[in-house]
Computed example of a mutant assay.
Amino acid sequence: MTQLTRKYHFCASHRLHSEQLSPEENIHLFGKCNNPHGHGHNYYLDVTVKGNPDPVTGMIINPAELDEIVERVVLDKFDHKHLNLDTDEFKNINPTSEVVAMVIYNMLRPQIPMLYRIGLWETEKNYFEYMDSGEHI
């Protein structure tokens, strides 16, 4: 079994806020990330596919095809957007990076059957990873 990981970049803002918490609880839990106007990140997205290389091409997937799918399904929707306000995916869920990684996986999975893992770099120190465990939230 072989894996291929491609790296992508997008910029987006979000506000960490849970409707299930009081304003005080949100401020205490999320601090400056609860700013009503949001805050931004330069995200790096790792998309990993896993499979056996095709006997003719020697590839798991054509990288150009993978790039087109990721651009159309994820980057066109999220790049330079406020995730809470500008996207349907986060209208009713708190866009923590844990959740963003899971949502991106679920967006790409129908388009990329051999999708294995999503890695999302929020900052140089914060990395989040989502792999399908068979349970869907």
Results as ranks from 00 to 15, higher is better:
P53W: 07
C33H: 12
D88M: 09
L75R: 04
P95A: 06
D79G: 01
L115R: 04
M131I: 14
I137K: 14
I118Q: 00
R72F: 12
R6Y: 05
M107P: 05
G38Q: 08
V47Q: 02
I104F: 10
H80V: 07
I112P: 01
P95Q: 05
Y105E: 00
M131G: 10
G134F: 14
E89W: 13
F128Y: 15
N34H: 02
F128S: 10
V49K: 01
K125P: 01
S13M: 06
Q111I: 04
T123W: 10
I112Y: 02
I27G: 00
V70H: 02
N42S: 15
Y116K: 01
T48D: 08
E122A: 12
L75Y: 02
S22R: 06
Y43L: 12
A101H: 01
V47T: 01
H9P: 00
E98Y: 08
D46K: 05
H39W: 11
V103H: 00
G40V: 09
E98I: 12
I69Y: 04
V99T: 14
F78C: 03
M102W: 09
V70L: 00
S22E: 06
T48L: 12
Q111N: 14
Q3Y: 10
V100I: 15
N52W: 01
D88R: 11
I104N: 03
Q111G: 01
K7Y: 15
H80L: 11
G119I: 12
N126F: 11
C11R: 06
P23C: 07
G58N: 09
P95W: 03
E129H: 06
G51E: 07
V100A: 02
D46M: 08
E65Q: 09
V49S: 03
E71K: 03
T48Q: 09
L16I: 09
E24K: 10
M131E: 15
Q3S: 14
R15E: 03
D132A: 14
Y130H: 04
R6I: 11
E24P: 00
N94F: 06
T5K: 14
Q111V: 05
L21Y: 10
D132Q: 04
T123P: 06
V56K: 13
E135S: 09
I118D: 00
P95F: 05
N92Q: 12
I104C: 05
D67Q: 13
L108I: 14
H9N: 12
G51Q: 07
M1K: 05
V73H: 01
H41A: 10
H80T: 06
H14K: 03
Y127W: 10
I27D: 09
N106G: 12
G51N: 08
N62V: 07
P110H: 14
Q20H: 14
S22K: 08
T2E: 13
L29D: 05
H37R: 11
F128A: 09
Y8E: 04
L29V: 14
P113A: 08
I118F: 07
Y127T: 08
S13K: 05
T5P: 12
Y43G: 03
T2K: 12
I69W: 01
F90Y: 08
S22T: 15
Y105H: 05
L120S: 00
D88L: 13
E129A: 11
H9D: 10
P63V: 11
C33D: 03
A12Y: 04
T48W: 04
P95L: 08
E89L: 13
H80W: 11
K81L: 09
S18C: 10
N92A: 05
K91V: 13
P110L: 08
W121Q: 07
R117M: 15
E25G: 07
A101G: 02
